[in-house]
Amino acid sequence: MAGIECTPVRAGASSVPCGHAIGSEKWRGTELARLLQGKIKLVFEDGLGLVDFHLSNRTCILYISESDLVSGNAFRRRLVRFRKACNLNGIVIAEKTRLSDQYYPPVQNFVVLELGMALLPVTNQNEAAQLIFNLVQERSREGNSNPFMRKKCFQLPDASLLQTVQKIPGVGKVKALQLLQHFPSIHKLSNASVAQLETVVGRTIALSIHSFFTQ
């Protein structure tokens, strides 16, 4: 535990080769690791700290299991420490099952609205393995693409982020997509001024959004 406390997130996450992932030693021998090893090149290392998996392009995965959701708020402290410790792109994967379903909505608000991180639900480790595989493939394509062309194409936001923005009064799916095209994270959206929001959705809804985040 002392090593984890001293090094909340291990340095050098940006050096992970495309098509690879570095997994925390605690995942060795698990069903998730077995499923991943058939899809990607997975290497285990000790001392990753708060992170469960490192992908390429400075992307990290933090995994919240069903038992984490049900047992309490310890995982929240881990996510807050991650957000404060580094500027890596953190993606949270959470097991949303019949048992943990009732605990998921407040976690969604906490992760997406308060921390500004992407939250992706899965029902089991098989789904999680497929999701991580897709993320590895996506990061590999980004790493091999032309950096001058990359930002010209708007990528659809993940479903949980889109649903969270739609909870703002007056914001439907169309306006949520428009907002996320200009403000691609909750952090940027919540810090946008009324004037900046007005150019996207008009004065009335801009005031509603600004009030939502500043109350």
Rank of each mutant, 00 (worst) to 15 (best):
E45R: 15
P121T: 12
R78I: 01
V111P: 02
D52S: 14
I93E: 06
V200L: 04
T164R: 05
S208H: 13
L131R: 10
S65K: 11
A159C: 07
A13Q: 01
S193Y: 13
L180E: 04
F75P: 00
K173G: 06
Q178M: 12
S208A: 15
L161Q: 08
R28T: 02
L36D: 05
L62T: 12
S15A: 03
N126V: 09
K96I: 04
P147K: 12
P8N: 08
R98F: 12
R28D: 01
G202P: 10
A13W: 03
A33M: 07
C60V: 15
Q102K: 15
L79V: 10
R141H: 09
R28L: 01
Q137K: 13
E25C: 00
A33T: 08
C86E: 08
D158R: 11
V80Y: 12
R78Y: 01
H210W: 13
H182L: 05
Y103S: 11
E142F: 08
I209R: 01
W27D: 00
R139W: 03
S24A: 08
T59H: 13
L156D: 11
R28A: 03
N146A: 01
H182S: 14
V122E: 04
M1L: 07
K167P: 00
Q125P: 00
A118G: 02
G72L: 04
L120M: 13
A176K: 02
I64R: 05
T123L: 02
A159T: 14
S56M: 06
V70C: 11
L79T: 05
V70P: 01
F82A: 11
L32W: 05
D101F: 13
T214Y: 07
A206I: 12
N134W: 02
H182P: 00
G170A: 06
P8G: 04
T199I: 12
M149E: 15
S100T: 13
T97H: 10
Q102A: 13
N144L: 11
D52T: 13
G29R: 05
Q102Y: 14
V165M: 03
F44I: 12
F154P: 01
S24P: 00
V51I: 15
I91S: 02
F212W: 14
L50A: 13
G12Q: 02
Q178P: 01
A206V: 10
Y63E: 06
L156F: 10
V9D: 00
R81W: 09
G19D: 01
A13T: 03
R150F: 07
Y104V: 08
A94T: 08
V136S: 04
E5N: 05
H54M: 14
L36N: 06
K173E: 15
S24L: 00
S145H: 06
S193G: 11
I64P: 02
A176T: 05
E5C: 01
T97E: 09
F44E: 09
V201C: 10
G47K: 12
V111N: 05
V112R: 05
P147G: 07
